[in-house]
Design a binder for these strands. Structure first.
Lengths: 317, 317
DNA sequence: CCCTTGTTGTCCACCGTTTGTCCATGTATG
DNA sequence: CATACATGGACAAACGGTGGACAACAAGGG
């Protein structure tokens, strides 16, 4: 255990620290000046540079302050003591009745869906999923209900706990709900177009459906092509629809030659103005092919939304 | 626009790189000159030709810079280090606003709705609102879009900035969207029933609609009665539907005798097992009448949800 | 209970540095 | 010739640092 790290100790500018801690840059400076809460080093032009430890400490201070502690009283505490304090405070708060209750709560929806699936009750499952979309919104539904449900189905199936029948039922209903999400979203006039597909060799469709649902909720006109499409077909569709972006989902076969070929083809035929984004568990295994095609890797749906937002903002009208 | 991606010759002109990275050609040159961020090879005539690796590196630099890093400080990092840095920044940042919360952002929806209202475009307004519900979920939609929209309409109308026609348009469309939210929520079997209404003398309907939408999204079977109902009528409906809770919205006339009478009547005729909740701007002015009727005051929709949740949890099945 | 006092988040003005953008000019490309 | 690009320089906007003011609020004293 070394108290100090070598030159690789990360030093963050104030803006990054502000975003990571949720504090304002103003507050960061005020706390430092008034209570000496941290002592960031300075660089060249006298700008603050915070270490990871500083960020951790500031985060704790923020949480403690939000729990009602006065910053002047806790500023002198050691980081260890702070950690204990925050833990204690949050335990108390969880126990309290909590008028400021959080309560977004995807848990009940997931549990209900799970029960309906076990009971082989397609109608109830569909109604549960529909209510979940209404309650949480499409993006949260996808991330907090659809994806976990699918994962649990997969795990259960691998372990023999879920019968193929149940698995098919859940898949079919989920697919239908996601598709209805995509189509029921009336596209606003002048909305940019997004083409979603899975290239040849990639049979798993759900990643693409997730992306399509999220894109539709964020205001895109979504053209959903489904799974296992040759590259030039995707490119042609993008061309004809004037798509601003193409999203590919790569999940199951890693480093598959057919998929790589489709990617190459897509890269050659796709218009250069069209942004090309790729995600999914298998996406990293196609790194070089994606790079050559001019595609950008997105780690998860959240990152996809950010990227799409930027693409939409970049186009004039 | 006919230019296609050239996968075989791996060198891209500056304009293509600009599009793919989201950076300006000017910025590309500036970064190269000032910080030596990449070293593209040159064509015979001296034009820059970037490789795929250059594009990748520039993308990472762009993302890091958008995360709050100063370009001058990260320009010297290796591409590997950059990748780590970007990944960490984006992960940490997503955590900042809330525990797992992806920072939805109702602003754009509100702005779009405002524009559609100004333009007198009912169709667009409806589509905007529907997309907002899909994107945010019903509860967040009500609190972050519907309520602010209504408030701004009211303010603008009072100040003469909004014409009565626009105001009516917005009200009608919003009412319709909220009503469709309530009805389109398929009630699960065994879901508890919630009766929502406005007692006699209370003409403002939107508070009740908000409550109905939120209740429906949270899994209640909602019976929406609308505005201006005598107390015994509300009680009778609750009785016949076996309602577990009744929600009243009191907004406009404060301390109105007719309303007070309706509340007294309701208190006398309503089953004791049925929870009675009341909210709205005018609710405090009916404090004594509500107390006598056995009603509980809820300050806002969030409090209403918490309270309803408790009622639902209290009943066996 | 009210009133005074200390605390704390926010905002402002002023200044130097960093950084994005723009312009003028010249040159290659088609 | 029109377009796209390179180069160098200029410039403005954004950002960060400092010091200080201010309003909202909580705490403590009478």
């Amino acid at each position: 255990m070394d108290a100090k790290r070598n030159g690789s100790a990360k030093r963050h500018p104030i803006q990054v620290v502000a975003r990571r801690t949720g504090l304002t840059a103003d507050v960061l400076r005020a706390w430092e000046k008034r209570y000496g809460v941290v002592e960031p080093s300075r660089s060249d032009g006298g700008r603050r540079l915070y270490s990871d430890e500083d960020v951790e400490r500031l985060r704790l201070l923020h949480r403690a302050s939000e729990a009602g502690r006065r910053i002047g009283r806790i500023a002198g505490l050691s980081t260890e003591a702070l950690r204990d304090l925050v833990r204690e405070d949050e335990r108390q708060e969880a126990r309290a009745p909590g008028p400021g209750g959080p309560a977004p709560g995807a848990g009940p929806h997931l549990a209900a869906a799970w029960r309906a699936m076990d009971a082989f009750d397609a109608r109830t499952l569909e109604s549960v999923l529909l209510r979940a979309t209404l309650s949480l919104g499409a993006p949260a539904f996808v991330e907090e209900v659809a994806a976990p449900l699918l994962r649990r189905v997969g795990d259960g199936w691998a372990r023999g706990e879920v019968h193929p029948g149940n698995e098919h039922l859940a898949s079919a209903v989920l697919r239908q709900v996601l598709a209805s999400l995509v189509t029921s979203c009336a596209p606003a006039g002048g909305a940019p177009t997004l083409v979603v597909a899975t290239p040849s060799g990639q049979g798993h469709e759900f990643g693409a459906l997730f992306a399509a649902a999220v894109g539709a909720a964020d205001g895109w006109r979504v053209v959903y092509l489904g799974a296992d499409l040759p590259g030039d077909e995707i490119a042609r569709t993008a061309d004809r629809t004037g798509a601003a972006a193409v999203v590919l989902s790569l999940v199951h076969p890693e480093a598959d030659p057919a998929t790589a070929a489709a990617l190459a083809e897509l890269g050659e035929t796709l218009d250069e103005d069209t942004a090309l984004l790729a995600g999914g568990a298998a996406a990293p295994s196609y790194g070089p092919a994606l790079g050559a095609a001019g595609a950008e890797l997105v780690d998860d749906l959240q990152a996809l939304r950010v990227r799409l937002d930027r693409v939409a903002a970049a186009r004039p009208a």
